[in-house]
Computed example of a mutant assay.
Amino acid sequence: MNTVIVIPVYNEAEVVGQVIKDVRAHGFPHIIVVDDGSTDESWCVASAHDVLALRLKVNRGKGAAVKTGIMAANLLNADVIVTMDGDGQHDPADIKPLITPILEGKNDVVLGSRLLHREDMPFIKVIANNVGNFFTWLFYGLLVSDSQSGFRAYSRYAALIIDTKADKYEYDSKVIREIKNNRLRFTEVPVQTLYTSYSKGKKNKQGFINGLVTLYRMVWKLIA
């Protein structure tokens, strides 16, 4: 079946080329990179690696980039769509375990969970993710072990039916809402996180302040 890997990037010129090479090395040549209005050479680097490289003119947010990539994959008639971050934290070796339940017809969505394989995850991140899980359950009524993970796989049916208006980091939690509201079959599989000096030093990562902003947006959307 045709599996397409969607990689949103924002100022990842230093590593996106290696991410593309690693994904290809694990047997997945169909890759879409979506540059979310980067101020560096992310789009140029991706384009040089012979992938479908799309570019948003302005920085709209992770959710917008992921949705753009999924839309493009749907237009390319992808049977399975995998979303993964472009900073090198996700291990391409985990792609096959992610897509297997979909290929076997057992699930519509597979969520990669860092908290099912958290030996190397910093304690503060474990706490932050559990807080995110709690509020996702509180607002949307579905409890998962890692509601903030961007490493996920979707069947064509799920990719077409999931519809969120979120453009920022709250997109990941809104997908959980869509799974529940559309009664999609889902499961979670453990995935590894590769913590590098590059990923730890990123300025544009989901941190404490961004987490509060994400929570605010989730609350605002409920009451607005």
Rank of each mutant, 00 (worst) to 15 (best):
G61D: 03
L76T: 13
H49Q: 09
V51L: 01
A53L: 10
H49I: 01
I70Y: 01
V66Q: 00
H49L: 01
L54Q: 13
I81C: 06
D50P: 02
D85V: 11
L54D: 15
S47N: 09
R60A: 11
S47H: 09
T68N: 02
L76K: 13
V82W: 08
I81L: 06
V82R: 03
I81S: 04
N59K: 04
K62D: 03
G69P: 01
L56G: 08
A73V: 03
I81V: 12
T68H: 04
V58C: 11
N59T: 10
V51A: 00
K67P: 07
L52A: 09
V51F: 02
V80N: 13
R60S: 04
V82F: 08
M84A: 13
K57I: 12
K67C: 03
A65S: 05
I70K: 02
R55H: 09
D79L: 09
S47C: 10
N74G: 10
M84F: 08
D85F: 10
G69Q: 01
L52V: 12
A48T: 11
A65L: 08
V51D: 00
V82H: 03
I70M: 02
I70P: 01
V66I: 09
A72E: 12
A64I: 10
L52I: 13
G63S: 05
A72F: 07
A73T: 06
L56I: 06
A64Y: 05
V80D: 11
D50E: 12
R55D: 05
V82Y: 05
V51W: 00
A46S: 07
L52H: 12
L75E: 15
A46Y: 10
N59M: 07
H49A: 07
M71V: 12
M71F: 09
L52R: 14
L56A: 10
L52Q: 07
T68R: 03
N77T: 10
N74A: 08
L75M: 13
T68G: 02
V82E: 05
L54A: 15
D50A: 07
D85Q: 13
A65I: 03
A72S: 06
R55S: 08
A72T: 11
H49S: 02
I81R: 01
L75D: 08
A65P: 03
H49F: 04
A65D: 03
N59G: 12
A64H: 04
D79M: 03
L54C: 09
D50W: 00
L54N: 14
N59F: 02
T68V: 05
M84E: 04
V82C: 13
L52K: 12
V51Q: 00
A48V: 09
K62I: 07
D85R: 12
L52W: 07
V66M: 02
L76N: 14
V80I: 15
A78M: 13
K67N: 08
V80S: 13
D85P: 02
G61H: 15
L76V: 14
A65M: 02
V58H: 14
G61C: 07
G63I: 04
V66D: 00
L75K: 15
L54I: 14
H49M: 12
L76D: 14
V51M: 01
K57C: 15
D79H: 15
T68W: 06
V66A: 01
N74H: 15
M84R: 06
A65R: 00
V82T: 08
